[in-house]
């Protein structure tokens, strides 16, 4: 740990590795993987077409697929990846994050946008969002859950992710800063994972009415 505290390069930290890779060299040229942007574009165009057509199947498709992926990724990261990441050495965390976080930065905002936009439209078509709907309180509960997740994700998780990626691009990344920022990632992912369990309960309740 002394090496980290003195700001020495990461290669000195990897336990049991003769010549561990330097995290800075693992960071791609761009923070966001640009090759994924056309896919995001196609998905968003599909979403606009689905909402414009106002067809139940189309908006249901985008909401269910987007929501299932969002929930699945959050649960997997929060309860499987997060705890594992928390037990890894700092260099191993950094190496994993250098490959993992750029993809998440493209994937998660897309899934969230698709799920929310299609979900609102679906709620209008089915009547869930109407204040006079008998089980409207379940829809409101889902808004609250999404709001809490948004605060954690946008106020803590995403800023930490981007700051880690920028830190890794430095000629000599500061291990102490990366460790501090990534510890936020671990607990924030746990909170969003827990909130997703609430989402599953609310959504299955609404769908069963």
């Amino acid at each position: 740990m002394t090496e980290i505290a003195t700001g020495a390069p990461f290669e000195a930290q990897a336990p049991g590795a003769a010549t561990p890779p330097r995290p800075g060299s693992l960071v791609p040229n761009t923070i966001v993987p640009l090759q994924g942007l056309p896919i995001v574009g196609v998905v968003l165009i599909g979403l606009v077409v689905a909402i414009a057509s106002n067809k139940l199947w189309a908006v249901d498709f985008f909401h269910v697929v987007g929501g299932a992926l969002w929930t699945g990724v959050d649960l997997f990261v929060g309860f499987i990846v997060g705890p594992i990441l928390g037990r890894l050495s700092i260099p191993a965390r950094a190496e994993f994050s250098a490959r993992f976080m750029p993809k998440m930065m493209l994937l998660m905002p897309t899934l969230v946008t698709v799920t929310l936009a299609a979900g609102w439209q679906l709620g209008l078509l089915k009547g869930f969002v109407n204040a006079g709907y008998p089980n409207h309180e379940w829809a409101v509960a889902s808004y609250v859950v999404v709001a809490v997740m948004a605060v954690v994700a946008l106020g803590v998780l995403e800023p930490a992710n981007i700051a880690v990626l920028f830190e890794m691009r430095k000629p000599e990344p500061d291990g102490e800063v990366i460790a501090r920022l990534m510890s936020r990632f671990v607990w924030a992912a746990g909170i969003t994972g827990t909130m997703q369990v609430a989402t599953l309960i609310i959504m299955t309740k609404l769908a069963s009415v």
Binding site: G7, V151, G155, P171, E176
Partner: peptide, 28 residues
């Protein structure tokens, strides 16, 4: 000084706290 050679440690105003507060109000 070496400890923070790569990462400047400055006293900064509570911008992040205010930003999260603003985000909470917006979402609420």
């Amino acid at each position: 000084a070496q400890r923070h050679a790569g990462t400047p440690q400055r006293a900064l105003p509570p911008v992040l706290e205010l930003g999260v507060g603003s985000l909470v109000c917006t979402l609420a």
